Amino acid sequence: MNSSQLPAKPITRRGYADGPFGQVHYQNLGDGAPLLLLHQAPMTSSQFDYVYEPLARRGFRAIGIDMPGFGGSDATPDTPTIGDYAQVVPAVLDALGLEKAAILGHHTGALAATEAAVVFPSRVSALIINGPLLVDEAGLREFMEGLHEKEKAFHAEPEAGHIVNIVKVRDWLAKGAIPPERLSDYAVQALVGRGAYWWGHHAAFTYDQAARLPLVTQPAMILTNTGDVIHNHAPAAHALRPDFAYAALEGSGVDIVDEQPEAWADAVAAFLHPAGNTLQADITA
């Protein structure tokens, strides 16, 4: 993706639901089978700007949710958990008059989607885990002593130095594949939340997804891309649930929805049919 390849952002329908921690902001596009989208941290439902329209073309009603403390959604009163993030799913479904929907989460959102599928099985028809994260004791200790301390120390700096740092990190993660306009957008998304900057990754790394995966009863797929920094967690998660479908896109970085929007939407649609059916065979793109 370069500057000339950036399409116009779609005009989505926006709204608010009354959730357990206050207002929950969501946006949606399309009139097909409902598909909830939960974003990575620290971003918003605008992470999916360039896949709302491809999903709508494939027969879905794509519904992006700002999880508590992100974007336009009110924050939890205390340090949130992945369980707290999952709590907003029924609120949005109720606001839209939907009995159930398929759900897809990316990175932190993938953990929240997993938890929503476990806690609200009657409201979630199918699950797509786009970037699982299996954290053992060593991984948690490394996070708490490293990234966690850096994020807790995050603060506004003169001449917008903190924004420059966000852009530099995201450019590194994207391996230079994302244009400056979108990198700037990433930084804005990271800073508009109502919660503490460090909350999202703290919730993610303190969540035991390995213990929750056996409790998922819905048809599910693990979706990954080989250039993702946590790609190695995907085959490990699949080993825990070999009955889950598995799709691996080639290359790209963390921002797979921006780098390969059509291929990504194809992988989603190959698993989730608008009629609500699922493909159980493994897919490799």
Rank of each mutant, 00 (worst) to 15 (best):
L272W: 02
A267S: 11
A270R: 15
L249N: 04
G276V: 02
A234E: 00
I230D: 04
I256W: 00
I256H: 07
A270F: 04
F244K: 03
A236I: 12
E259M: 08
D255W: 15
D228K: 00
G251R: 02
D243W: 03
P235M: 14
P242L: 13
A234M: 03
A234F: 04
W264L: 14
A237L: 07
A267V: 10
L240R: 09
V268C: 03
L240Y: 01
A237S: 10
A265G: 12
P261C: 14
A234S: 13
A247L: 09
A265Q: 01
A265V: 05
V229R: 11
A245Q: 04
P235R: 07
N232G: 10
P274N: 00
A245T: 14
P235W: 05
A275Q: 10
S252F: 11
A247M: 08
I230L: 13
A269V: 06
A269F: 05
Y246C: 05
A239M: 07
Q260I: 08
Y246D: 02
D266P: 04
G253T: 08
P242M: 06
A248G: 10
G251V: 08
L249P: 01
S252D: 10
E250A: 13
D255A: 15
Y246S: 06
I256F: 07
A248L: 08
A236T: 08
H231M: 11
P261M: 11
A263R: 15
I256S: 07
V257D: 00
Q260T: 13
D255L: 12
D258R: 05
F271W: 02
F244S: 01
V257S: 04
A234P: 01
V257M: 09
H233T: 01
W264H: 13
D255E: 14
L272A: 01
R241W: 00
V229C: 09
P261I: 08
D243P: 02
A248Y: 04
Q260V: 12
G253E: 07
P235A: 12
H273Y: 05
G276E: 05
F271N: 03
A270D: 15
G251I: 03
A247H: 13
D258W: 13
A245C: 11
H231I: 09
A247V: 01
R241K: 10
A236L: 15
E259G: 09
V254H: 12
P242S: 07
W264R: 00
E259C: 12
E262R: 13
D243A: 12
E250T: 14
L249D: 00
P242C: 12
A236P: 09
N277A: 15
P235C: 09
A239E: 11
G253P: 04
F244D: 00
N232V: 09
H233E: 06
A267C: 11
D258S: 11
A234N: 07
I256P: 03
A265S: 15
N277P: 07
A236E: 15
D258K: 02
D255G: 12
H231S: 12
A248N: 10
N232M: 11
A237M: 04
G251Y: 09
L240E: 04
N232H: 14
E250W: 00
E259P: 12
A270S: 15
A234L: 13
S252N: 14
D258A: 10
D228R: 07
V268Y: 02
A275T: 14
A237H: 02
A237G: 04
D258G: 09
A237V: 05
D258C: 11
V268A: 02
A234D: 02
